[in-house]
Measured scan of single mutants.
Amino acid sequence: KKKIKIYIENENGEKKTIEIEVEGDIDEIAKELAKKYNVKIVKIEP
């Protein structure tokens, strides 16, 4: 498992940072999160 930080922006332009532990393809997981929460991924840090 890797701990990563995902910087997101919602439709109101509010920026947030999510810190999660992931296993597998980080890009795939980030895309799923973006779709699920309707946010834009700004940056992903390993």
Rank of each mutant, 00 (worst) to 15 (best):
N12P: 01
L33Q: 00
E28F: 08
E9M: 09
E21T: 07
N12M: 12
N38P: 02
E14M: 10
E11F: 10
L33K: 00
Y37E: 04
I18Y: 13
K35N: 06
E21V: 10
I4G: 02
I4H: 08
I20Y: 05
K2Q: 12
G24H: 02
V39C: 09
K1C: 10
E14T: 09
K36S: 05
I26H: 04
A30L: 15
D25P: 07
K31A: 14
E9C: 06
E21G: 02
E11K: 12
K3Q: 08
D27W: 12
D25F: 04
N10H: 14
V22W: 12
I6Y: 04
E23W: 14
I20N: 00
K40Q: 09
K40G: 04
K15A: 10
K40A: 05
E23G: 07
T17I: 14
K35L: 14
K2M: 11
V42W: 07
E32D: 10
I8Y: 15
E28V: 11
K40R: 08
N38E: 05
G24T: 04
E45R: 03
E14V: 12
T17Y: 12
K1R: 12
E23P: 03
T17E: 07
A30S: 05
I20R: 01
V39H: 05
G13Y: 03
K16A: 14
V39N: 03
V42C: 07
K16D: 13
V42I: 15
V22H: 07
L33E: 01
K40V: 13
E14R: 05
I26M: 08
G24E: 03
I26N: 03
K40C: 11
N38T: 04
V42D: 06
G13S: 03
K1V: 11
K43P: 02
E14Y: 09
I29L: 11
E28C: 08
G13K: 03
G13M: 04
Y37N: 03
I4V: 12
K31V: 08
I26T: 06
A30E: 04
K3H: 12
K36Y: 08
E28A: 12
G24Q: 03
I26W: 14
K43N: 06
K1H: 08
I41H: 01
K5D: 02
K1E: 04
K16C: 15
K36I: 10
E9N: 02
K3W: 15
K1F: 12
N38C: 05
I8E: 00
D27L: 14
